[in-house]
Lab assay of single mutants.
Amino acid sequence: MKVMIRKTATGHSAYVAKKDLEELIVEMENPALWGGKVTLANGWQLELPAMAADTPLPITVEARKL
């Protein structure tokens, strides 16, 4: 699914347009965010693609819901 990742004042957030859902990312498998699992505030887990740590945000990526 397409997910937009952006930086907020409190960390990172994910927006899933198909579900009209925006949630804070509360847990990251990798400190650089990319190439691992993230957990959203509502409990969803997404697998993000591997990208460079300095990838500019906001960005829309293809993520997989676990």
Score class of each variant (00 low, 15 high):
Met1Lys: 01
Met4Gly: 04
Met4Thr: 15
Met4Pro: 01
Met4Ile: 14
Ile5Pro: 01
Ile5Asp: 01
Ile5Trp: 02
Ile5Glu: 01
Ile5Cys: 05
Lys7His: 07
Thr10Pro: 03
Thr10Ile: 12
Thr10Met: 13
Thr10Gly: 12
Gly11Ile: 03
Gly11Gln: 04
His12Trp: 15
Ser13Arg: 08
Ser13His: 09
Ser13Cys: 14
Ala14Glu: 01
Tyr15Pro: 01
Tyr15Val: 10
Tyr15Glu: 06
Tyr15Ala: 07
Val16Phe: 15
Val16Lys: 01
Ala17Val: 15
Ala17Gly: 10
Ala17His: 14
Lys18Met: 14
Lys18Cys: 15
Asp20Lys: 10
Leu21Asn: 07
Leu21Ala: 09
Glu22Pro: 04
Glu23Lys: 04
Glu23Ile: 15
Glu23Ala: 14
Leu24Phe: 09
Leu24Thr: 11
Leu24Tyr: 09
Leu24Gly: 08
Ile25Phe: 02
Ile25His: 00
Val26Arg: 05
Val26Pro: 00
Glu27Phe: 14
Glu27Val: 09
Met28Glu: 03
Met28Asp: 00
Glu29Gln: 09
Asn30Arg: 09
Asn30Cys: 12
Asn30His: 10
Pro31Glu: 13
Pro31Gly: 12
Ala32Leu: 13
Ala32Asp: 15
Leu33His: 03
Gly35Lys: 04
Gly35Phe: 05
Gly35Gln: 05
Gly36Ile: 06
Gly36Arg: 01
Gly36Cys: 03
Val38Pro: 01
Thr39Lys: 10
Ala41Asn: 07
Ala41Val: 03
Asn42Thr: 02
Gly43Ile: 03
Trp44Ile: 08
Gln45Asn: 07
Leu46His: 05
Leu46Lys: 00
Leu46Asn: 00
Glu47Arg: 09
Glu47Trp: 14
Glu47Pro: 00
Glu47Lys: 09
Leu48Ala: 01
Leu48Phe: 03
Pro49Gln: 03
Ala50Met: 14
Met51Gly: 01
Met51Asp: 01
Met51Cys: 05
Met51His: 04
Met51Glu: 03
Ala52Arg: 10
Ala53Tyr: 11
Asp54Cys: 05
Asp54Thr: 09
Thr55Arg: 03
Thr55Met: 06
Pro56Arg: 09
Leu57Met: 08
Pro58Ala: 01
Pro58Trp: 07
Pro58Phe: 06
Pro58Thr: 04
Ile59Ala: 12
Thr60Arg: 04
Thr60Asp: 06
Val61Tyr: 00
Val61Glu: 01
Glu62Ser: 11
Glu62Asp: 11
Arg64Thr: 13
Lys65Phe: 15
Lys65Cys: 15
